[in-house]
Design a protein around this nucleic acid. Structure first.
Length: 278
DNA sequence: CGGTTACCCTGGATGC
DNA sequence: TGCATCCAGGGTAACC
């Protein structure tokens, strides 16, 4: 479920509790989420390990263990998330980090079990694995690099923006929001964007993601919550996502909900007046 | 190779 | 109420 702002919010929420703290043990309640290591291996590596740091790479949560204990990478995908308070749905708990401090725990829950938990021997191995399947982080990519990458594909700009190999961190919600802010139609061939449009898009990505992080991400239905179980505030003040028939904040015309080529089964929201195919 | 689709899972909302 | 259907913010293997 979470995109870059939600994962960033998770990581910031986890840092005070996990960073520099020692794990008493890792409890794995669903080993089918593990990839590249067995349950026994992960438990052994986690026992007594100190967490050197918790960071984000694209939509990955990267937990570095001190010494030679390696790196735990958690990919929450659609429905994964962390809790510092007792989870509302205990049946969805997949992983529990028991801290040395008695009684202190961090829960990882995932209703649909689409998320992944991986282990890497060191930071370099994790970085290489990330680079094999991802482009630059959406908060770090330079405008010229974004332009170069978009110029190489004739796909629609929205599927290109959501392609983690082009840039890492943007999913369905923030693709719609950044394209609306930049006033670009989601089906424009990526390579057809003018330099000025790429410039607008690059700025919009930075602004939309920064705002969403400030507001602690996007929550709806029973989906994403912060580590304290609170709803993110972004969708209370966004422009298009989930706002079918509501007025566009620029022109006040109705927002359209549609499906576009290259994105099976996912909705696209945009303003047909402010975002023209041209 | 670039681009597209099927599929992985499950829970919640909606409709009959 | 019960049951069927649709929908969902991600990602990748397999296919054309």
């Amino acid at each position: 479920m979470p995109e870059l702002p939600e994962v960033e919010t998770m990581v910031r929420g986890l840092q005070p509790t996990l960073s520099g703290r020692t794990l008493r043990r890792l409890e794995i309640l669903d080993s089918t989420l593990l990839q590249g290591c067995t349950s026994g291996q992960l438990v052994r590596r986690g026992r007594g390990a100190t967490v050197a740091g918790v960071t984000r790479r694209g939509k990955w949560v990267v937990m570095e263990l001190a010494g030679d204990r390696g790196i735990i990478v958690i990919q929450p995908r659609m429905t994964g998330g962390f809790w510092l308070v007792e989870p509302a749905r205990p049946e969805h708990i997949r992983l529990v980090f028991h801290l040395e401090n008695p009684g202190a725990r961090v829960w990882y829950c995932d209703a649909r079990r689409l998320g992944k938990v991986c282990w890497f021997a060191n930071g370099l191995a994790a970085a290489e694995a990330f680079a094999r399947s991802h482009g630059p982080d959406a908060l770090e990519i330079a405008r010229t690099e974004l332009a170069r990458r978009l110029s190489r594909t004739s796909r629609g700009i929205k599927p290109a923006l959501m392609d983690q190999k082009v840039l890492a961190g943007i999913g369905n919600i923030y693709a719609d929001e950044t394209l609306h802010r930049a006033q670009i139609h989601p089906e424009r061939p990526a390579s057809s964007l003018t330099a000025e449009e790429v410039d607008r898009l690059h700025r919009s990505i930075g602004e939309v993601l920064a705002t969403a992080i400030e507001l602690e991400g996007s929550s709806f239905d029973a989906g994403y919550r912060t580590v304290l179980g609170l709803e993110g505030g972004f969708l209370a003040q966004n422009s298009v996502y989930g706002r079918k028939d509501q007025p566009c904040p620029i022109c006040e015309g109705p927002i359209l909900k549609t499906r576009i080529a290259g994105l099976v089964g996912r909705p696209t929201y945009y303003c047909p007046v402010c975002q023209v195919l041209g």
